[in-house]
Design a protein around this nucleic acid. Structure first.
Lengths: 191, 191
DNA sequence: CGAAACGTTAAATTTTTTTTAAACAAATTA
DNA sequence: TAATTTGTTTAAAAAAAATTTAACGTTTCG
């Protein structure tokens, strides 16, 4: 293909960007992030910091949409406010390091999982203990309470491990254990 | 609290189970799984293998709902069909090992992410190379094409690492690197 | 100040997703 | 084979979520 004019080149660059932005959006969709929020992140990732109006123009959507989208991405810790000096408009910048993205995004969720679930397990186990120790309850039910108790007790091991994983990621130790290979020889073999 | 009757105990057991099922559902919601599918998984996790009708009764929902819910959970590799001999009805069983759940659920998504995104990056880079090598294109655009190319090139490192992570998890090596602690002394300090 | 610009909130609309009821096909059993 | 049961598909209804328009409060700058 030959680009005799800048206009064609412009279009081609946009096509290239769109390919990647769409993939990023699809990926984030996989993890429960809205497709439009994913598109927003992908765009910011390739375009650099943007104002809400620039986003609106780029994506052809309303400003409140951009506002809420950015807010959600901030909740996931993958977008931050920036200050462009001399400028009145606020700008926002996407986390450009995917390793950091991974870390911010997943550790937040895993921490929450461990916290919430460990909490409910403890509460549930208290209820079950009452039954197990109650002489007025039939053996059938005591048995069931005990089985359920054990399943829950067992799950704790997982949540504790999850917290450990989170720690390894947050401290960066994970990259000692599984090193980043800047010039992976398997590069092209992976697919 | 004192359980003078089995009826009260029954209720209390159900309360305990519901606490944990709700947490599991909330957690799965976090990862983009429908709340009802999460509830379904949580229920199967605590109740053992179930038929569609048992699920329907337990959750008070329609059978097609159960059917589609189970199907989705099967796609995530966290529920499997089982055969209860002598029984006509099909039964389904949830993955009870959360480590296995983690592995099945996340590696599938990460593998997909790496594959899809690496593919689009390669396609996009081909387009950009054309522009970079085209003498009829202005330096401005060439510059932009090159910057974009570099950002994309850079991202590959991440996807390659992600594939490595997936491999460590699938082979179980991850548990050599980050051991499971069956009786963690920090047990109760974690929260 | 007062006017304009910016970002957010609120309400209304649209779209998408989930859920169900009904119909269907496959399989089992009597 | 006929009748029943089971699971899925399809179409409709209901519910939930995303998007937009309009309105609001703040800030900035003339």
């Amino acid at each position: 293909m030959d680009h005799s004019s800048d206009q064609e080149a412009r279009e081609s660059i946009n096509n290239a960007k769109d390919l990647v932005v769409d993939s990023i959006a699809e990926t984030m969709d996989l993890y429960g992030v809205t497709r439009s929020a994913g598109t927003l992140y992908g765009t910011m990732y390739l375009e650099g910091d943007m104002t809400l109006d620039e986003m609106r123009e780029k994506l052809g959507m309303s400003k409140p949409s951009m506002s809420t989208g950015v807010k959600k991405l901030q909740e996931f810790n993958v977008v931050k406010k920036t200050f462009r000096k001399g400028k009145r408009k606020q700008t926002y910048v996407a986390e450009k390091d995917f390793f950091q993205f991974f870390s911010n995004f997943f550790t937040q969720k895993w921490e929450r999982e461990a916290k919430v679930n460990l909490h409910s397990v403890r509460e549930a186990q208290e209820l079950l203990i009452q039954i197990i120790n109650d002489d007025n309850v039939s053996n059938n039910l005591k048995e069931e309470a005990n089985e359920t108790y054990q399943i829950m007790e067992n799950s704790k091991t997982y949540y504790i491990w999850l917290n450990k994983l989170v720690e390894k990621i947050e401290t960066g130790e994970i990259f000692d254990l599984i090193p980043i290979d800047p010039n992976d020889p398997d590069h092209d073999e992976n697919f």
